[in-house]
Design a protein around this nucleic acid. Structure first.
Lengths: 121, 121
DNA sequence: TCAACATATGAACAGATGCTCATATGTATG
DNA sequence: CATACATATGAGCATCTGTTCATATGTTGA
């Protein structure tokens, strides 16, 4: 080929750029894609997943979560902060304790879809 | 309180341990929870999310993916390897090129549920 | 079989992440 | 208001992760 090194990769390149143009127009905005990755990142840790599953069964206070998962209160509290920031959990104070629960059924749906996928093979 | 330092955290502790016992019986197995976190971890990177969204629109070869996302072929290839391992994408060879596409509609569902969640506030 | 193209992969490095430890904040109770 | 309990938070550290760079593998056509 007589083309220089800047020659685009695939040979049917005109066709592909046309396709890519169409595809990019259909994509969600960059911001949404970034936020979405951030959301899944929160689900992508087994400590947080375990917290979410416990909360999908019941409203539980921090120290009980720590006991249930056999981890320190501090570790749990750090993770709860992340879950709060992503609006995956809500909480209410009752005396000295703070009880956490899932923010909404969306969270449950996402967890269940994930479970379906890993169980399907 | 006259209890020693090993006193469990919450004061109504008998009630809570009873609750925790019930909750733990309802939880998926440790292995599943781990696998689930691993799955979401794969979704938890904006490069991979962008790849998945492009593939949700069309079957695309590696070099076009690289061009679409404005990244190096190597970076894309590394990420595709991870997506393959998680069975989120499939591929077929056509001459020198390899065309990738989503493994199944499950992937699309998970992406869409995630989008719903970030758009709901 | 050789040259050119498309993709994959290993090593290395910089940045992100999760835990621990110490300590701060907030709440109830004597 | 001082103490004990429940939770939150900041710093530090070890580990994990994503990219780059160099190079290997695989495919096609001359």
């Amino acid at each position: 080929m007589e083309f220089n090194e800047n020659t685009p990769c695939c040979e049917e390149h005109e066709v592909h750029t046309e396709l890519l143009k169409i595809v990019s127009e259909q994509l969600p905005k960059e911001d949404s894609l970034y936020d979405l990755a951030e959301l899944f990142k929160v689900f992508g840790d087994s400590t947080r997943i375990r917290i979410l599953f416990v909360l999908s069964e019941a409203e539980v206070c921090v120290c009980d979560l720590a006991e249930a998962l056999n981890m320190t209160q501090s570790a749990i509290s750090h993770q709860l902060k992340i879950l709060k920031q992503s609006k995956l959990v809500k909480f209410r104070r009752e005396g000295k304790s703070i009880f956490y629960s899932l923010a909404d059924d969306h969270v449950r749906s996402i967890l269940n879809l994930g479970l379906e996928h890993i169980e399907e093979d």
